[in-house]
């Protein structure tokens, strides 16, 4: 079984953008999520994020599965309070401001789609190189890159262990969900042992390969192009307008 990757290996407009710009845009997205004035802005960001994800050629099924995974958040933040307001007049979640819940609920979708559009177009090497290009301290760059490796390697281990458990006669199939969930505990020992064994060898290998965690040149960065700058300007501009709409009335006393 192949390990599912965050990175989609395609050649879209977003794939071709400089990783430093995409990381800066990612920071802009995070600030935007706290700055967006109302749920309409968040809805617009969600739609934009979805469009960009599709443009980045993220498989629609992946987007749907990820969106369904955060659906409980949406229901908890919006649908349940809304339903209770309709049924019981005296219940006032979020101090009676249901649009706050709606903004929060849509923020999850916006974060998901925009993050996928940006992060799925960068390989882990490009992400860490982008971080190095932005002069982020090397230990943090290494940590991010190594986390990706460990995550994928561990997932690969777990898939192999699941297969090995099946060969020991342990049912781990969707056809028998309850038995399979009970048997998942059996994965714990081999998965932990494999990871523990890996840890010692990995630490030794890192030392002998000369990882000093102080300095490392970026290997994949080129020059920032016009399209990169334009994309960053658009993102920062959007954030600025959102901030103005939200904070200008209060600041200017309007």
């Amino acid at each position: 079984m192949r390990v599912p990757l965050l990175y989609t290996e395609k050649n879209s407009f977003l794939h071709r953008r400089d990783p430093r710009i995409k990381l800066l845009l990612f920071a802009v997205v995070i600030i935007f999520l706290y700055t967006a004035p109302n749920w309409q802005w968040m809805l617009a960001a969600s739609v934009l994020g979805l469009a960009l994800s599709i443009a980045a050629r993220v498989p629609p099924l992946v987007l749907l599965i990820l969106w369904l995974l955060q659906l409980p958040n949406f229901i908890g933040l919006v649908a349940i309070p809304l339903g209770q307001e309709l049924l019981a007049d005296d219940f006032t979640p979020f101090d009676g401001d249901l649009t706050f819940g709606l903004r929060l609920g849509l923020a999850w979708s916006a974060a998901l789609f925009l993050s996928m559009a940006l992060l799925s177009t960068m390989s882990p090497d490009k992400i860490t190189d982008g971080m190095r290009g932005l002069k982020i301290p090397e230990p943090l760059c290494f940590l991010v890159g190594y986390s990706f490796l460990l995550m994928y390697a561990s997932m690969s281990d777990i898939f192999r262990t699941i297969d090995a458990m099946k060969l020991k006669g342990i049912e781990l199939t969707i056809r028998r969900p309850i038995e399979s969930i009970t048997n998942m505990a059996k994965l714990f020992v081999p998965a932990v042992i494999i990871m523990a064994r890996r840890a010692g060898t990995m630490m030794s290998t890192l030392q002998l390969r000369g990882f000093s965690f102080t300095h490392r040149p970026a290997t994949t960065l080129g020059a920032v192009g016009v399209a990169d700058v334009a994309l960053l300007v658009a993102g920062v501009g959007g954030l600025a307008v959102a901030a103005l709409v939200r904070f200008a009335p209060a600041v200017l006393g309007l």
Partner: peptide, 11 residues
């Protein structure tokens, strides 16, 4: 090392 998988540190 003999343990081939654990000594790979990059993607």
């Amino acid at each position: 090392f003999e343990d081939y998988a654990s000594q790979l540190t990059q993607i």
